[in-house]
């Protein structure tokens, strides 16, 4: 076991354990906090994969914006689970069994995946010019149209969110 494999093993175990903890919490704020910890571990994994820009974007966008949105919604609407009601649906064991079966199939498929043809951006090319520069070059030269469409995809929901969240004063109390 080399040091790299040990580090990866730590991230592997922690990410899976944290995700299992996240989906079994009754208190929603605790679930979001465990998810924050999971995102920090995923950002660490991205650093392993030589993608430091994605590690930082993971923290800024996912952990710093999306989860904060979750926290705001949970806290401002005072969303709480009733203590007596069950948190899982009724057919839990059947779904668990089917899920494990699918997991077995997918894991055996992932374990014997082989690599396809290699691309042109080698690891030390990315380390020489920083990862951000290489990503920017590829994004703005080869993928300009998807990037502009992405701008629209982010712009339209921004307006939609403001429209949907406004309380309508013309109707009566709903």
């Amino acid at each position: 076991m080399t040091v790299q494999q040990l580090f990866f093993g730590y991230f592997f175990v922690m990410i899976l354990a944290l995700s299992l903890v996240v989906i079994t919490r009754r208190n929603l704020v605790h679930a979001v906090l465990w998810m924050l910890l999971m995102f920090v571990h995923i950002a660490g994994l991205y650093l392993f994969l030589n993608a430091e820009f994605f590690a930082v974007i993971q923290i800024i966008v996912y952990a710093g914006a999306i989860l904060v949105m979750f926290l705001f919604v949970v806290m401002l609407l005072r969303l709480k689970e009733e203590q007596a009601l069950p948190i899982f649906v009724r057919g839990l064991h059947g779904r668990l069994f089917v899920g494990l079966a699918i997991l077995l199939v997918l894991v055996s498929m992932a374990a014997e995946a082989t690599k396809g043809p290699m691309g042109q951006y080698s690891i030390d090319y990315i380390q020489r010019h920083s990862h951000l520069k290489v990503l920017g070059t590829v994004l703005f030269n080869d993928f300009v149209y998807p990037f502009l469409i992405l701008g629209f995809i982010l712009f339209v929901p921004m307006i939609g969110v403001v429209v949907l969240a406004l309380k309508r004063r013309s109707h009566g109390p709903s």
């Binding site: 899976l16 989906i23 929603l28 899920g99 699918i102 997918l106 014997e112």
Partner: peptide
């Protein structure tokens, strides 16, 4: 393959949470 196995297992955990929780916020999570 180890990374792909991690990705697959994390995906299945998320899918399991999506199909079995009654709470709508947990679906988003």
């Amino acid at each position: 393959n180890w990374y792909l196995i991690l990705s697959v297992m994390l995906f299945m955990v998320g899918l399991f949470g999506f199909l079995t929780r009654r709470n709508m916020i947990m679906l988003f999570i």
